[in-house]
């Protein structure tokens, strides 16, 4: 399982990059969902969101999940490519599978990579 050390994590399995404000779903979470077949981003550029707001909903063959913002701020970009290629969230969750990018103005309750790894192991 991949857990990049430069990112921060939430208990609901989202990641955020503190340096550029990109956020998405973790490798652990995509593995639990299995094949993601649909992504709907619920926010638009220029929206202001708070940590904990629902930013997207995803569906796999067997499950549906809401994705919540790890941090708050103004939305500056949304990954439009996911609509046609939702499987990117499975294949590259920390890269091309990012969901939303914000200008961070509010910190959330976040874990570092080591704490998140431990958190994932506890749930195995």
């Amino acid at each position: 399982m991949n857990i990049p050390s430069d990112l921060k994590y939430t208990k609901s399995d989202e990641w955020v990059n503190p340096s550029d404000g990109k956020m998405g779903l973790t490798d652990y979470a995509q593995g639990q969902l299995s094949d993601i077949v649909f992504v709907e981003v619920l926010v638009s550029v220029d929206d202001t969101i708070s940590a904990g707001d629902a930013i997207a909903s995803v569906e796999s063959v067997k499950a549906a999940a809401e994705i919540y913002a790890p941090v708050g701020g103004k939305v500056i970009a949304v990954n439009e490519d996911l609509a046609d290629a939702p499987e990117t969230m499975n294949s590259d969750p920390f890269g091309a599978g990012w969901l939303v990018q914000v200008e961070i103005s509010e910190e959330g309750d976040l874990m570092d990579a080591a704490a998140y790894e431990k958190y994932c192991e506890e749930r195995e």
Binding site: E59, S60, V61, K62, A63, A64, E66
Partner: peptide
């Protein structure tokens, strides 16, 4: 298909 929309997965959602 598209069963995740349904009550047995989404429950109160």
């Amino acid at each position: 298909t598209l069963t995740p929309r349904e009550q047995h997965i989404k429950r109160e959602r």
